[in-house]
Structure formats: C-alpha cells, structure tokens
Design a protein around this nucleic acid. Structure first.
Lengths: 218, 218, 218, 218
DNA sequence: AATGAATGAGGTTTCATTCAT
DNA sequence: GATGAATGAAACCTCATTCAT
C-alpha cells in the first residue's frame, strides 16, 4: 500500500552489517542458524546486548525475526549460543599444548592488532558484554577463567604448585590489557590507539606481555 | 515520601544500590540533582546505559522519576551530566602539573586497587559506556584523549617533539590496562582478579606501568 | 483476540465508536490499516488531535496499540494518513470538471445535511483540526486551498483573469460557512442547528450559496 | 547550578504570547487572576484546550504555575472562567436593546474583519473549543444559543411567534459563517482568506448576512 | 500571597515474542 | 521451514497538581 514504514530503511542507524557472503538464501536450517550467530556476535560485541535488537540481527542475517525465537528460544538464547561459539573457537587456540610463551604472546597480539573489522577481536569484546542472563554470564566468566588458566599454563603455571599462583593473576592482567585495548580501538575508537598501525603497537605490547608472562626473563 | 520505598522494592531485580548517606531528605533541588547523578553513575557504570532504567536510578536516589526529566531533560541528559561530573573530578587529579612518573603511577593504581564499591573505579568504567548520544560520546572520547595526554606529559611527552610521540600510545595502553582491569574486577567479577588484594596487584602492575611510562628506566 | 474487548471496555469514557462493520477480524495488514485510519479519522475529527489517544483509536479498530507505530510510524503519521485519505476522497468529487454551479452547491449541501454519523462531514471537520505537525498542517492548508480553487472554478473563476479574483474569496467564504455548520452540528451539537432537518437547512443555505457563487444571478 | 533545563527557553515553541502591558508585577490577587484569564483565553482559543499547558499560560502571564490551581481550582476551572468572561463581554454587545439588523450585522463583521491579533475574534474562537469538561461545555453551548437568540431577535424573531422560528436557524447559520471564517483566518491561516483586507471581506459578507437576517429585503 | 520542589497518572513508543498462514 | 501479522510488557517522557517553604 505504500505508507507502511519501510522496515529495512527504518532499522539501521548508520552502517549496516549485512554481509553478502553471509546472507543465506536457501532453506537450510543449519546455515540459517550460523548466519544468525555470526550476525548476532557482531552486533552484541560492538553495540552491547541491550542496544542490539533482534530485528537488527535478523536483518543483518537476511532472515525473518521469528526464526530467532524458533532456533534459539529467545534473544538470551541466541546470546548464549554466541558465547558458546566463541568458547569453541578460543579454546583450541589456547589449548594447543606445549605452546611456548612466545607463541602465546604472538597469538594475543594478533587479536589486538587485527583490523577492527576482523572477527577475532570481536570475540574478545563479546567477553566483556553482559546480557544480564545468569546462564550466559556464568559461561562468560568461566570462559575468561579458562582462558586465563591456559595462558598461565603456557607461562609455567601449575595448579598444584603454590609458588606459581601469582602467574594466574599476571595472566589475567595480560587479558585485561588486551580487552581494554580492543574496547578502546573498536568500540570507543579513541585516538591515537584506534588508528595505530600493527608496527606501532607490537613493540611496546610485546615488552609488556613479556614482563607479565615471561618468568625466565632476567 | 510514602511509597517510594514500595517502588524501590517492586523494581529491583537483584541488589539495590540505595545508599543511606546519599538519599536526600529535604526539598533542596541541588541535593536532589547530586543524588541523581551519583545514583545514575553507579548504575550506568556497572550495568551499562541501556540496561539502566530511569526508574531504577530514581528509586536508588529516593526520588520521583519525573525529576530526571525536569532536571536533566532526559535520560541522555543525565548521562551527559554524569560524564561531565567525571570529567570535573578526573581533570584536577591529572592536571596537577609537575607530577612525576611515580606519582602518576601511584594514582593510577589507586583507581584499580580500590574496593569495587568505591566511586573512583566507577568513574573509569563510565568512560567505557556509550549511550549512543552523539554529544555524550564526544565528551567521553575527548576525556579519554585528554586523560591520555596528561599521563603522557608526566612521562615526558611533548606535543612539539616528534621523538616523544610513541609515549602517547604507551600512555593509552596504560589506560587500556586500567580500564580492562576495572571492568573485569567490577562488572564481570572474574576470579582471581576480582578478589585479589591490593598487595597482590600492586607489585606486578607497578612493573608494567613503569615499562610503559618510565623512559629513564634502563 | 481475547482481551481486546476488555480493553475497549476499560478505556472509553463515554460513547464508544466501535463499529461492527469496521472491526477487522482476519490477519490482513491492509484491512487493519484501513480500520485504523477510519477509526482515527472519527476520533480526530470529533475530539481533536490532542484529545484523541492512540489507545482509543486502537480499541475502536479492535486492534493492538502497537500496530499504529508499526504501520504509520507514529500518531502524527496516522494523522497524516487520515489527511491524505481525505484528500483522496475529496479531490475526485470536486475535480469532476464541467460541473455547473448548481451541481457544486448541491454537493456542498450534502456534506452539511448528512446525518452527523455519516463519514462525509467528518472529512470536512478533519480539515479544521491541527496536529501541530508541520507536514500534516501543510497538507491540510493545501487541501483547503485546492478545494477553494475548484469551487471557484465552477463559479467561473480563472486564475488568469484578474477580474475573477474576488470569486476565490467568495468560494472560501462558502467553505467557511460549511465548516462552521458542520462543526456546530457535529462537535458542538448546538441547538437548533444540530437537530435541524435537511428540509429546514436546504432552502436558506441554497440561497446563501447562490449569492456567493452564482455570478449570473441578477 | 547551571544544568537545569531553562524553563522559559524550553517552553515556548515559537512565538511567545507574553504581553508586557499584561504581565502583572505586584502582589494583587485580582490583577493576577485577570492576567491569567487573559493569557489563557489566547492560548485556548488559538491552540485548543489540550494543546495548551498551564505552564505556558503561567509563563505568558508572568505568574507561578501553582497559582492556577490556587485561584481556579484546576485547568478546567480556568477554562470555565475564560468561558464566563467571554459571556460577560459578548452579552452586553448583543443585548444592546433595540438594535437594528444593520447594527447587528456591522458588529458581526467587526469580529471577523479585525486583525487576527485583536482579542475580539479570539472570543469567538473560544466558543469552538471544547475542554471535555461537562460544565464548561454546557456553558459554551448555552452561550452560543443565547448568542443565536439575540441575533435572531434583532432580526425580528419572537419566541412566541411560530412563524418566526426559521429566523433562529438563519441566525445560527450566520454565526456558523463567522466562526468558520475566524477559524480559517486565525488558526488555519489559509489563503487568500487569511490575508484578505477588511474591504475585500466586507461587501460580500454584508450581502450574505443580509440575505440571512434581513427579512424585509425583497 | 507566592514560589519552586516534588509527585503520580497517563501518553506514546519500542521491542521481544507468539500466532496464523 | 519460513513469513508477516499481532500482542503485551515496559520504557521514557509530559503534565496537571500538591506540598513545603
């Protein structure tokens, strides 16, 4: 009829996240689910849980809104799914056994240095976002703790060795630094951090991380 | 008075922030305004802008909701007022000229180490929260940048000396670290960071900050 | 469905406008939209823009309030839609070219004489109601002016003939008379006008309109 | 403190009606009352009852808002007072004994022709505005009816003479015409009526009114 | 008598979710 | 499996009114 408010136009305030390679076209439940999680993670990470609407997510994924409830039960369910997916992707990275401190530091740096558009930093940001949902928040906290432990382990931490306990705290400080950096670079976009190049970042960060994690350092 | 208590009881899902020393009792606009800003800052900082409702804030301050619109125009107006207040409180601290690196580091540590209930860390957290309001966001970014510059200046940065530019970036990394730590300790409450004592935190943090800011160090 | 009836019962202070032939039953957006516009037009025309609440309109249409925002963006959007619809319905009537003065007068009389319940007079009343919205008000004014021109044209007015200009003013006086009458009959319900029969009205009004519009009259 | 929303600035959307000769300065209850009624009548007449806020009225009158409740009980009470005042001012005009048709017509014309800023047309406009309040609406209707009767009486109407009854209806039509004209000129501001000069209006209107009211006219 | 602070009711709008198709 | 229509709860805000000073 013409005078119905155009949804797609009315929705996005600014840039749209619609991603062509992501928008699924067929009728494949699994593809749809993945498209939703991916779109959701971006929005949740960059704009926060409350500011993200399910309609935005659905629009980004090129999918009907009702499917969110259908597949994930609720907005919180979708958030939890995002959380779990992040866990799945972070875990293997860190679990990689026998990783040396050097390797671990290199991997951490990647997260921060990567262009803000990449998906990697978004996963970290997500770990700072709360939905208020007990369940999802528990997952979130547990993920951060496990992440901490794996980082600490690479640095020589051993749960059974009392003397190595401080390493746990130091590893978490390293994580805090990473999270703070990604936040300022991606969400807040504060200068000069936001537009600093990989080169500019790498050197000082590497030193700092080594101070925190490298126990062999004189 | 009467049913304000009712209201606060009906509202909060979880802990109430009502603070007796804060609840204003008289009929003094200025006191009321301050009570609102203070209550708002807590909620905004810990729960984020969107998740915070004006009713919660009003209930925390022991005041009728309509007063928020009356005194600050809107929820966004109140947020901006919080922002400005934080600026007013942070500025003098950092502006204190002639501050040595040692002093600056000590001051930074205070923000992180203070109990999560204290107001100091909340001010920092607030700097990570966005309301989506253009105005407030600009203030926020500018505050972070000014904060950066003052920190860098204490470390020897000088806008006119090209060679000192990297210091700016390093100062911002220090801020990122602080923000990340406060976030994890206060909002996320992740272990062992959340319950770490001042002693446990001080030593490693001091070393890291010195690496970033102390240019005289070997 | 369920508690819509409840709602309409709880809401109206006074007469309800619910109109059985109008209440839509299915799940057809277009029908719903029309039902809303129709219900809105009645309320707006008889009670004015501000005094009309969206809840009343929705209840009259047998529809959930949120659909007004959904379909028309806002209360003002709905008002504008009413305006446009009135334009659509008035235009063809008056545009019918080659209409003689007699025909035009007869048509005008119809609007006034029709029972207050009919929809025709309501359309005229709507032209007197302002929402304060710039857009809608512009439409309103333009409609009245176009209405004037078409009436004047039937009486011999020609934009290019200076000597015929006074006809424009006279045509507008005729419109003013009609609007005043409908207002007093429908909204104010003042006696004896409100309960005057068609017969009683026709004769004097016809004379008056002829004095204003019939230039051939001796 | 500075950041309280400036009331005076926030209030008026467009032109302010503040009228220096009207703003009372002392502490004289009666003067205050009159100032309020005068300010209220303007607002009510031009913007309608609902769209007018008591704060606007108080600001226009240069008076504290609470005084409206104090002196008139409520917004509706103030409206009723406006109504009564209009009655007081219209009555003597029309009651003027032995007024000939010519005199009556001249007086009617004055109301319409007067500049939109004058108070006279506003009184008429007020008669078209409803507050929804039973009491005030009854007054309004009664005023219009009495107005009608006095107009009709001047034209020869006599309540006891059945043959003169149609005159009542004709008189009311004359009033409807006046009201419609004032509405279009003042509130809607439709062209060319709004900017028509007294000269342009007088001739045709006089003819029309004579047709309606002058029974001696052949 | 008058003021400014404070209140509570009600209005519009947004949004996650459920219902039919 | 997927869509668009419809719902109800809750959020922010406005405004007439009442309370202390």
């Amino acid at each position: 009829m013409g005078n119905q408010v155009q949804e797609s136009k009315a929705l996005d305030g600014g840039a749209t996240f619609a991603d062509d390679e992501l928008v699924r076209s067929g009728r494949d439940a699994d593809v749809t689910r993945r498209a939703l999680v991916r779109a959701a993670r971006r929005r949740f990470a960059t704009e926060g849980y409350r500011a993200t609407t399910v309609r935005h997510i659905a629009a980004d994924a090129g999918v009907n809104v009702a499917l969110i409830s259908r597949y994930f039960g609720s907005k919180e369910g979708l958030f939890e799914a995002c959380m779990n997916r992040t866990v799945d992707e972070l875990d293997p990275q860190t679990r990689a056994r026998a990783s040396s401190v050097d390797e671990v530091i290199a991997r951490l740096l990647t997260h921060v240095v990567e262009a803000p558009n990449a998906d990697d930093p978004l996963q970290l940001l997500l770990l700072l976002r709360s939905s208020g949902d007990e369940n999802a928040d528990a997952i979130r906290r547990r993920t951060l703790e496990r992440f901490t432990e794996q980082l600490a382990a690479a640095a020589g931490w051993n749960a059974d060795v009392p003397a190595s306990q401080p390493l746990l705290l130091r590893a978490q400080m390293a994580i805090a630094l990473m999270l703070g950096l990604v936040m300022l670079r991606t969400a807040t976009e504060v200068q000069p951090l936001a537009s600093a190049s990989a080169d500019q970042l790498t050197e000082p960060l590497e030193r700092v991380l080594r101070v925190l994690l490298d126990t062999t350092e004189k």
